[in-house]
Design a protein around this nucleic acid. Structure first.
Lengths: 215, 215
DNA sequence: GTCTATAATGAGATAGAC
DNA sequence: GTCTATCTCATTATAGAC
């Protein structure tokens, strides 16, 4: 065993820690890793900068911890819903993709808008090769399960095509969380984006990839 | 008239300026605005840091100029190809979307891989609300033309849906330029992404949005 | 136009008192 | 655990010689 186990942290400490991670989630999700500063996080959390280091370690470690904190719950919901879907059967592509995306909306409805921040945070992780390992650790296992479920519907399709479709779909999802501002300029007065649109778009795109005739 | 016009810059000056903008394109496209440093740009361009300021002004101005430099050519090609497509007729959704995406590939084939960098740069502009005005200036006019062409095929669809589909499609395109690394982890040994996949995915997704029955 | 030197700011990280 | 003060470094930006 590696040295002595740390004592259980006090309630106060846990609360401070939560405040710091909440603030980090907000700031990182809005400005990205490079654009965020520990000082802004400390200010938002209303703690001295030193405490951010104490709880989060380096900036990179804090970022990773912020991403990891909620990844488990997201994965859990997705896997649970996918399982329920399989048991209910029969599976459809639309239902699988809906299940993948809808997890965020459920969390927003149940726990609040901080999950929108988390969605944007995931966007940054997925968009930058620097977080390759973190993304693989937090999201790939779930993604693989969904890809397998999708491939079970299209036995002739390659996993390469399913992965491509998955990447395009996740990209669209990230745009969904970020694109209010762009929608406004392209189509003034448009109502905020609807998750059903995202599901319909991605499912149709995925289907087009997987059904394609080999040349 | 506002003061005297500047003299025509020397050939040497123009060449230095090009080197700086080329370097800026590379560095900004790889690290984003916040992650990039003027020093790295200067080093890559093999000029002293001071010169970067002289030619580019502030970091923000340099970024905007880098984006603007090639936006015109991209827009021109897209508009020319769209016009040719219309004259050839009849229009199809796939052909329109192909025309929109293929411009990058044509440029890569004709002028080289720096256009892959430019594609990534566009990604950063499109993903961050901070560049709202820059994106509107450089890309929205072309995008609007393509949206109109698409809507002409689906007279009953709303411009809001077309804009949503356009945003999702551009997001997928940006993933296409960035996602080699993710494809590798999701489907090891996969060949590099194929632009035909992008076209098929986006066209099918767009069609699904525009054909949807009103509730 | 070019280049060097330097100013001015803000960053992440740390040491040590409480 | 908490907080203050400080260190060290890298950044953008500018002033001025050539």
């Amino acid at each position: 065993m590696t040295a002595a186990r740390k004592r259980a942290p006090s309630a106060r400490s846990l609360e401070t820690r939560k405040r710091i991670l909440d603030a980090a989630e907000k700031v990182f999700s809005r400005h990205g890793f490079d654009g965020a500063s520990l000082r802004e996080i400390a200010t938002l959390a209303d703690v001295p900068v030193g405490l951010v280091h104490h709880h989060g370690g380096s900036k990179e470690a804090l970022f990773a911890e912020t991403v990891r904190r909620h990844a488990g719950l997201l994965a859990e919901i997705r896997m649970r819903d996918l399982k329920a879907l399989k048991e209910k059967g029969p599976l459809t592509l639309e239902a699988i993709m809906d299940c993948f995306f809808r997890a965020y909306q459920k969390l927003v409805n149940e726990e609040g808008d901080q999950w929108l921040d988390y969605g944007r945070l995931v966007a940054h992780v997925s968009a930058d090769a620097r977080w390759r390992d973190l993304a693989a650790e937090c999201f790939d296992p779930t993604t693989q399960h969904f890809m397998e479920a999708i491939l079970s519907l299209y036995p002739k399709a390659t996993s390469e095509l399913a992965a491509t479709g998955q990447i395009f779909s996740v990209a669209a999802m990230l745009a969904f969380f970020n694109a209010n501002w762009r929608l406004e300029t392209l189509s003034p007065g448009a109502s905020p984006p609807d998750m059903n649109h995202l599901v319909r778009f991605s499912a149709a795109g995925m289907k087009a990839l997987l059904q394609a005739k080999p040349a």
